[in-house]
Write a protein that binds this DNA or RNA. Sequence first.
DNA 1: TTAAAATTTGATTAAACAATCAAAAATTAC
DNA 2: GTAATTTTTGATTGTTTAATCAAATTTTAA
Lengths: 198, 198
Amino acid sequence: MAKEKTFISEARREQILKATIDVLNDIGYVKLSLAKIAKHAKISTGLISYHFADKEELIQHTLSYLIGAQLEFIEDRVKREADIYQQLLAYIKATLTYQYEHVENNVALIEIIFNARTEDNIPYYKLNEEEEDPLYLRLENILAEGQRKKIFSSDFQPKATAILINGAASESMLLQSESFDLENYQQELIKMVTKIVK
Amino acid sequence: MAKEKTFISEARREQILKATIDVLNDIGYVKLSLAKIAKHAKISTGLISYHFADKEELIQHTLSYLIGAQLEFIEDRVKREADIYQQLLAYIKATLTYQYEHVENNVALIEIIFNARTEDNIPYYKLNEEEEDPLYLRLENILAEGQRKKIFSSDFQPKATAILINGAASESMLLQSESFDLENYQQELIKMVTKIVK
DNA sequence: TTAAAATTTGATTAAACAATCAAAAATTAC
DNA sequence: GTAATTTTTGATTGTTTAATCAAATTTTAA
């Protein structure tokens, strides 16, 4: 059923998608409208409707793009490491670094996750993805493998620790200000996680 | 400048506020409207405008109420404990328990924090309250006092640890499903935090 | 009991919205 | 070069929105 898309169509779709991310950063999901996106992209409103079935589909594609970009960034850095403990550190560092280096992507991601809803009217933040979320699974696997190889202590549950690490990372993204020292927090977080897993 | 409010006025305002929380749970902030709140409360739309200057003020009051209720719940349970380590455990347990026992309040809180914006168009989730947020301060003080009294190790930063604990607690609230075992997570979280602070 | 004040209604207003569509413009294919 | 196809515009449609307001109702006070 996958429609063939022309080169122009793909380029336009990406342009609209990027404009959506920008507008989400500027005014947030609540005030987001096709008219505002069109104005930002300097195109007509009808053109968005031509390339995306509806607003829902546009948001859906933007969400997929944002999740994919974050996953790729983190996965790239984790797989460079052979040692399992280094993989854990790479995961933590990459998560924090991505949030810091791609603030616009992160803000857009938050705006969509906490606002957009599925067809059944369930908000994405309530959607219990923990079982499927590739990022969660990746972290859980690192922790479990570390235990299997006796590199990590057996005195923690990979799932609970994965929740803690991801929570501690997400929380810090909400605290970005001048007074917040990311470098220091990263060191401290690694110290704390090491106490848990070693 | 504090206007005297009559008994009727106070009761009506509370009714509207509670209806707002219900409607936020049902349809979320994005689709929230005065008409929907009025319908849910079985009153006319004009009555909401009579008791609240505008939608902004209604949301603002609902937010204050929700923050206050959570703070009171947690503070009540923490201050029952004399021992500082028990206070830390009480803080963690109370945070998780509140999220579980008052799901509607929590959902409404999330909906507002991640959607409503200040007059300067800054979303509340970006508002760096960490320095003022009474809950953050309470936790930080428990951790710092434990260090001062040599009950806790001196090998952690109260601020970083407070972020981790609050993050780990918030994250779990997003994962409430049948498969999520709150009791088990609470035990594990306490075990992990104990490794960090002891 | 009655008049003033407070409360409530529901219709109305003007603005913003997503989506549609006919017509124009640009691109592609032959 | 021209016809068919794809892309783009901008006006239009029918909703929904927050807020206002005159009129009706209820409560308060004396």
